[in-house]
Amino acid sequence: MKYMCLIYTDPNVTPPMGDSMNAAYFDLNRRMKEAGVMISGDALQPTRTATSLRKRGDKVETMDGPFAETREHLGGYYVIDCPDLDQALHWAAQIPGAAYGTVEVRPLVVFG
């Protein structure tokens, strides 16, 4: 079963690992790949690079900024393949962002 782990962090909170942050993520990527659970993962650029878009009728409206202004911002994600929620939460707990932000874990839709 595939799960998405959405990583939300406050840009004003300094991560406890500081400069070693990237290394911590790369290490997790490696361990997830070795365990055969990682399908994909990306880090997003800061929310100031975001553009939101809606279409009403034929009119496309764009707006500067993210969909919602929250204190913690969506900063990245993983898609992982795990047998059950406990396994998914076990991996989610190892995401460095879980230690200073919030991780949402949600199962993905299986089409067809």
Partner: peptide, 14 residues
């Protein structure tokens, strides 16, 4: 059912 919460006794770690 949807999030597949397992029907199991957790392992020693959890």
């Amino acid at each position: 059912a949807a999030a597949r919460i397992p029907f199991t006794v957790p392992g020693a770690e959890d």
